[in-house]
């Protein structure tokens, strides 16, 4: 089992952080590995980071909201919104009436996320939603830069400019002709979005965004 866990890798060959057996890498290192999509005079670079290896946890289905209430976790009233859970150093993203995604506020600190997952798994409630396996089925990129909205406008039909889409907004739309969730987190310190999409298409997404940067 340990061998299988250690062998699990993301589409780009990274070992999943939760199974790295002592191997640690911080967001700083992930930053150094960022792919610069393009750099424009005066606009600065647009960076793309692959965060697929980092932990995330999704619960959806009937009972998911009730389970959160039972744990005293306040969730956003509006769908398509991200909110911090201060006591747990986690962010919660509400994607549907009974569809939630938990993200660590700092990607390399997954202890709080693991604790939440353990709590959910151990809970004997008959209806508590089901595990949506977001860490398995979704790739997780972060794209950021001053002109990120301009780049994404080539492929995403929603206006992502900073004045139209404030921090903690979430958009469920299409990027590179694929279904994609965009959450404005600004986690690299500038205008940026977390992208969640089909993990099997991670390579396609990377190539598509690179081509858009060039073109």
């Amino acid at each position: 089992m340990a061998f299988l866990a250690a062998a699990r890798r993301t589409p780009f060959g990274d070992v999943y952080a939760e199974f790295s057996e002592g191997e640690t890498r911080s967001i700083d290192e992930a930053s150094r590995q960022a792919t610069v999509l393009f750099e424009r005079k005066g606009g600065g670079p647009i960076d793309l980071r692959d965060l697929t290896r980092y932990g995330r946890f999704g619960v959806k289905g009937r009972g998911a909201s009730d389970w959160l209430r039972s744990k005293g976790i306040a969730f956003p009233e509006r769908i398509n919104t991200l909110a911090p859970i201060a006591s747990r150093t986690l962010d919660i993203v509400r994607l549907g009436a009974e569809d939630y995604l938990f993200l660590p506020q700092s990607v390399e600190q997954s202890a709080s996320l693991s604790a939440l997952r353990t709590e959910w798994e151990a809970d004997g409630l008959p209806r508590k939603g089901f595990n949506a396996w977001r860490e398995e089925v979704w790739a997780w990129f972060h794209i950021s830069g001053t002109d990120v909205a301009e780049l994404l406008a080539k492929t995403c039909p929603v206006d992502l400019n900073a004045d139209r889409l404030p921090v903690r907004s979430v958009v469920q739309s299409r990027v590179a002709q694929m279904d994609c969730i965009l959450a404005r987190t600004d986690r690299a310190g500038n205008h940026g979005f977390d992208l969640f999409f089909d993990v099997a298409s991670a390579s396609f997404m990377m190539r598509s965004l690179r081509e858009l940067g060039i073109g």
Binding site: I79, N80, P157, V158, V171, Q172, S173, R174
Partner: peptide
């Protein structure tokens, strides 16, 4: 592109539906 108004997500391209 034809636009459809999603009650949850707002106006979107018809290709999203």
């Amino acid at each position: 592109m034809k636009i459809m108004n999603c009650p949850l997500n707002g106006p979107r391209n018809i290709s999203e539906f």
